[in-house]
Computed example of a mutant assay.
Amino acid sequence: MSATTTSPARPHLLLPAILTIAGTLVLCTLGIWQLERMGEKHAFIGRLTSQATGEPAPMPASSSWATLDPARLDLTRVSANGSFVDGPFAGVRTTIAAGPPGSRQLSGFGRWIFQGFKLEDGGTILVNRGFVPEARLGEIKPASGPARITGFLRAPESRGSFTPDDIPANREFYTRDPAAIAAALNLPPAPFYLEAERQGDGMTPPAGVDVKELIERIPDNHLQYALTWFGLALTLIGVFTAFAWQGRRKVTAADAP
């Protein structure tokens, strides 16, 4: 009786092919989305750069605030006329990274200084006067009197899962939330706050934001992310191709006389 031999089964490629196609589509979609985000980010940076070299827009009338979208107004450069509200300020804890060699900016652990500002049209907005290192917090006194402030409208900062609880009784906060800060200062809430533009050399606290440094701090890694997603898609296609080719080789070798 002659022995019978059995050939190895041909690899089942249908399910791996479906999974590969689905995975490739998902990865390419993510890559395209990152390219779209890159275009939006570059347009945003271009707008910021243009604003920095031009005249600031007027502060939106307080009567219109309820109809405005803070997210769409975020980082719009404006000027505001009014007077600082007499009373205490609040501090938002933060850490500022040191700048590149040769830069002149305060850094380290400290606080953003928030104080009420009554506008000429009667509205009240919080002004982030700038950063103060913790060791120099005792030097800071509330601002007073009339002023013209140029700066950037900012939307409320969201709270993360690990953000510590605020201490309103001490006027100490961990997010730039204008509603919560205004409540602690007994001021009417506004949907956004005004981040004051830097005046002077940036070494005297409170040091406001410098628009060039602000632009440099905006993350722009979308092209890198897009190439990563497209690279993973190519890798997935390569893995499937190698799997199919290896299975075909085994079947061809088994079928050979």
Rank of each mutant, 00 (worst) to 15 (best):
P133L: 03
I21N: 06
F117T: 02
S2W: 15
W33T: 01
P101I: 04
D255N: 12
P16Q: 09
P8E: 10
A80Y: 04
A22T: 08
G151R: 01
C28L: 14
D201W: 12
W112V: 02
V132R: 02
G82T: 08
M203F: 08
Q115V: 08
L15P: 02
F109H: 09
Q51I: 04
A180Q: 06
E134C: 04
L236H: 10
T252S: 11
T4G: 15
I125G: 03
R104A: 12
W33Q: 08
G87L: 07
I218P: 11
F114M: 06
L126R: 01
S62H: 04
L194V: 05
G160R: 11
A135P: 00
L214A: 04
P205R: 06
P100S: 10
S64F: 06
T95R: 08
A90Y: 08
G208M: 03
A226I: 12
A90Q: 08
G82Y: 00
T5W: 15
P100L: 09
G46T: 00
S83A: 15
K250P: 00
S144D: 00
M38E: 13
G110M: 05
E40I: 00
K250D: 08
A9P: 11
R93C: 00
A3T: 15
F243K: 12
R171N: 12
Y225L: 12
A3N: 15
I32M: 15
L234V: 13
A184M: 01
V78P: 05
P178H: 02
R72K: 13
L119V: 06
D255G: 00
E195V: 04
G238R: 02
Q224W: 11
P206I: 05
G130L: 03
I237N: 14
P56T: 04
V92K: 03
H42P: 03
P205Q: 10
A182Q: 01
R104E: 11
T20G: 00
G54E: 03
L13S: 07
F230N: 05
A254F: 06
P101R: 10
A61M: 09
S50W: 04
E157G: 07
G130P: 02
P8F: 14
L13C: 10
L35W: 09
K212D: 15
S63W: 09
R104V: 00
L14S: 13
V132N: 02
L48Y: 10
L73W: 11
K212W: 09
P188H: 10
W33P: 01
E134Y: 08
G122Y: 15
E134Q: 14
N170I: 00
Q105A: 14
M203T: 05
N128G: 05
L13M: 11
I125R: 03
A244W: 07
W33L: 01
F243R: 14
A97I: 02
M1P: 14
